[in-house]
Write a protein that binds this DNA or RNA. Structure first.
Lengths: 342, 342
DNA sequence: GCTGTGGTTTGTAGCGCTACAGTCACGGGG
DNA sequence: CCCCGTGACTGTAGCGCTACAAACCACAGC
């Protein structure tokens, strides 16, 4: 008598259970289960009957129960810092497509900072996700501890040195170096760098170091740099350009941390009457859609974002035996796309 | 003997269970459960001990089990068609913030078409989400049937007439009319409309009708319209502009379905040497960040995206008794933002 | 007629957690 | 001295599903 009516008024979930479907279809619960999970194990005719009854009753298998019973969920949790740009769009598509091919689902959670990321990790761990995909290698201290303690398969993306388990990315240093060489080859001598400050700052530290190093190798003075506030997008470009021009009126090239910043720089140049690339060469990062469309079109770095998503899933679901050493970092490469802005 | 080692090699989930934590802390499982769900029911001292043990064992409560036992999950499923633009970013933030305030989580799934949307709905229903938030009112036939059969609380957003349960949006007709009146007041006489074709086409039907109607009211000839392929963003603007100019060389105003299309139109104008707004006035839709930054800055419609997200959660978690009539559609309004492009 | 074969179907015993109804210790009032 | 209220904690019975082994069944071959 106790259990009766426990989940009564609840959220209005469907009243249909596997039991009920089984009874209505005149089969055992296991046959219903098999119909949904391993259709080939059930005879055509039986399956059709079960599906018909299920449809009529509006039955949708309870994944929580299934997961609890089977001990494995087919959900991959992806935590992304923002959905502001098309780079992440392609990345997520890569994740979803690859996961779908293996019969898994991707659930996304947005996290603006390490705190929110940790909360999302907790939730995904609570659901006993099959794996978790993070962006970057800067996390809350507890995040790594938690994931490791639970042996949760984890992939950090957009980086080549993971802090937790596995990772996939590309060489931002090499890309930055190529950018610098490209600008130098175009005759630029006073080159600036625009990144973001705030929580993501360290993601740009490697790029900044490579930038300085390569400038030195080219025999040029250490360039200028400006770190924009991370919440700003296009506006950051404007702000940064003003700051850099004040410090170096002869600035003739600027390397931006994202295409959006670069777009902001170009818009600011249009307002100030600065000719791009005549007076100032501008480069972006990410090859967002705007890069090819803006006037002048943007020289940028095109990471293989979609492949990164696919590779992350591949690593996650590769089923390495627990306790084994993590596979080595994967590098999906990038491409320098040269356009009108340089 | 059967159950033993069932979920053995599995995905590598944590071995820690509530039982084990309880044993290690010298309390009953219920005390552990209460420690996590209703801390105030457990004495300070006991709670601290339980939490310490849990942390040491890397225990994270199994939400699937909890959900199964309690019959209610604290997850809201949000399905969005794209994460390409910042409008959805603000919308999702609204969802997440409002949900967090009520102790719920938002899980996001990306769906490019009705098929994928249906799959995502199935998954969320499988997890017995507390509610589901969709974008628009165009769905797979089965989607509505499924949601209704299960009495799943559902909110359709960005529309004022829901097809399933509840909805929140703003008047796209009124916004479109105001756009037309604005252009007419600026002396424009040959005005075109650029929308998207494909699966989302019907989302623009209302706008197109309002556009035509308002042109008529102003005593102008029925305008031109062009439906771009939905996968294109900025590129669609270029393509559409070319098509419209071929059909009407005297075109002096164009209303675009999104800021991205409008951006594409402006870029195309820059390449063709068309002065905006001198020769051609351009309006966008959405007030994405680019709208205020592009040169010339863009006249656009600013929906209260964030409020829309918040309102959706409010509707979802308002706890109307099952079977009751759905609350009336909510209108969060919009704002016409006039800038340089007109 | 009987056994072997292989595909299909079924029973059983939990998965880890939570609701609910206790149990227990303590203490103040009658 | 007994009774009962109060607050902290515990025992039990499932939530709906799935793994596994066992049962079933039609039919071929001996």
């Amino acid at each position: 008598m106790s259990g009766a009516g426990r989940n009564g008024a609840g959220g209005g979930g469907s009243r249909a259970t596997m039991q009920r479907v089984a009874a209505a279809a005149g089969v055992s619960p296991m046959t219903v289960s098999n119909t949904f999970r391993y259709p080939e194990r059930v005879q055509e005719e039986t399956r059709a009957r079960v599906l018909a009854v299920a449809a009529e009753l509006g039955y949708v298998p309870n994944l929580a129960a299934g997961h609890l019973a089977s001990g494995s969920s087919r959900v991959v949790g992806a935590i992304i810092p923002s959905i502001r740009n098309s780079s992440f769009y392609r990345y997520v598509r890569g994740l979803q497509d690859a996961a779908a091919e293996q019969g898994h689902e991707v659930m996304i959670s947005l996290a603006d900072d390490a705190e929110q990321e940790l909360a999302a990790v907790r939730t995904f761990m609570g659901w006993r996700a099959a794996g978790i995909v993070l962006v970057g290698s800067e996390h809350h201290a507890e995040t790594a501890a938690l994931l490791r303690a639970a042996r949760m398969p984890t992939v950090e993306t957009w980086v080549r040195r993971g802090a937790i388990d596995m990772c996939v990315g590309f060489s931002v240093e090499e890309a930055t170096r190529q950018m610098v060489r490209h600008l130098v080859a175009r005759g630029r001598r006073q080159i600036g760098f625009i990144g973001y400050s705030g929580g993501v700052a360290r993601r740009f530290a490697d790029r900044l170091a490579a930038f300085r190093d390569e400038l030195g190798a080219a025999g040029l003075a250490a360039g200028l740099d400006y770190m924009a506030h991370e919440a700003d997008g296009f506006a950051a470009g404007k702000q940064a350009l003003e700051a850099l021009l004040t410090r170096a009126p002869g600035l003739d090239g600027v390397i931006c941390a994202t295409d959006v910043i670069a777009g902001g720089v170009i818009f600011a140049c249009q307002r100030r009457g600065i000719d791009v690339p005549g007076q100032l060469a501008v480069t972006g990062w990410g090859d967002y859609e705007i890069a090819s469309e803006i006037v002048p079109s943007l020289t940028t770095v095109r990471p293989r974002t979609r492949d990164m998503g696919r590779t992350a899933i591949e690593l996650l679901l590769s089923g390495r035996e627990a306790g084994g050493p993590p596979p080595p970092p994967r590098d999906v490469g990038f491409e320098l796309v040269c356009r009108e802005s340089t």
